[in-house]
Simulated scan of single mutants.
Amino acid sequence: MKRIIVYSRNTIVVFILLFLGICEGNAQVESDTVERKEETLPEETSPKYKDPNKALWLSLLLPGAGQVYNEKVWKLPILYGGVITSIYFLEFNNRRYQRFLVALDIIREGTEPNPFPNLNQDGIVRNVNYWRRNRDAIYLVFGAIYAFGAVDAFVDAHLAGFDVSDDLSFKIEPSVEPIMASSASVGISLKIKF
């Protein structure tokens, strides 16, 4: 009986120590979250802070709107140059595709003369497939340019509050390190200052 009581006391002591350790761990976690909130609040209220999600949605709604939100208007001509160029080539390839498709229908019906006298039916089919593939590839290029604009706005908003002050530096300097009492090695050292 006495042994059971001692065992119970040890068990109670272990549970109390575990409980105190858990409470202390929870208190530490809560203080960490309070510190994190304090760290993020000034960043979100600073004038440099940009909301990445807002920049992404603006750029998805209208190409270039995210860049305007991030105050990087100089990127607009590049983005719209890509969009306009892809639209031009999309229309050009589609127009050629439609021309050869009509010519293929004319040859299959046989009612009118061949609009492309140098090409037979197989040549026209090859041209139809060629211009259709080009048109479909330009759809992918247009989608890639559109997605690139959205990703650029998102990443630029994330990096808006990045510190690029003069305190950051990278220097390459010659260095002399002693090897033994009478000799030294000569080399180059890279110094990074944060």
Rank of each mutant, 00 (worst) to 15 (best):
V125M: 06
Y130W: 15
S175L: 07
L20R: 12
P63W: 00
Y146V: 13
V141M: 06
W74E: 14
V13T: 06
L159N: 05
Y97G: 08
T45Y: 02
Y80M: 08
L140C: 07
K37P: 09
I22E: 14
V102W: 05
F92S: 12
S46H: 13
V14D: 07
A103K: 03
G149Q: 08
V151A: 08
Y88A: 14
I172A: 13
L140W: 04
G21T: 10
A27E: 10
V141H: 07
Q67P: 01
A27C: 12
P117H: 09
A65V: 11
L20K: 14
G66W: 02
S86D: 13
N127A: 15
S31W: 06
G64C: 02
F170N: 05
Y69G: 04
P47T: 12
V155W: 01
L61I: 06
F89V: 09
R99E: 09
Y7H: 12
I84C: 13
P178Q: 08
Y130R: 14
I179L: 02
L119G: 02
E91N: 02
R126A: 10
F194N: 05
G149H: 02
P113K: 04
P174W: 02
H158T: 12
N129K: 09
N26G: 14
G149V: 11
R96Y: 07
G187P: 03
V141Q: 04
V125K: 08
S185H: 02
V83D: 09
R99I: 15
V83L: 13
Y97P: 09
K48R: 11
A137R: 09
I145P: 05
E109K: 07
V29A: 15
M180P: 09
E44S: 00
Y146W: 13
N120H: 06
D167C: 01
V151T: 07
L17M: 12
D156I: 01
P77C: 03
T11R: 11
K54E: 10
N93H: 04
F154M: 05
F100C: 07
A153W: 04
K50C: 05
S185N: 06
I179A: 02
I12P: 08
T111L: 14
F92D: 15
N134H: 06
F154G: 08
A181F: 11
N53F: 10
L168M: 09
A160P: 03
K37D: 10
K54A: 07
E71S: 04
D152C: 01
F162T: 14
N114Q: 05
F194M: 01
N129Y: 15
E30H: 03
V14H: 06
A184N: 02
F142I: 06
K37W: 05
Y49K: 01
D163L: 04
D51A: 01
K48G: 12
I192E: 00
G187K: 01
D51L: 00
L41V: 07
I145V: 11
V34C: 13
F194G: 08
A144T: 14
F89S: 12
N134G: 08
S31D: 15
E35T: 11
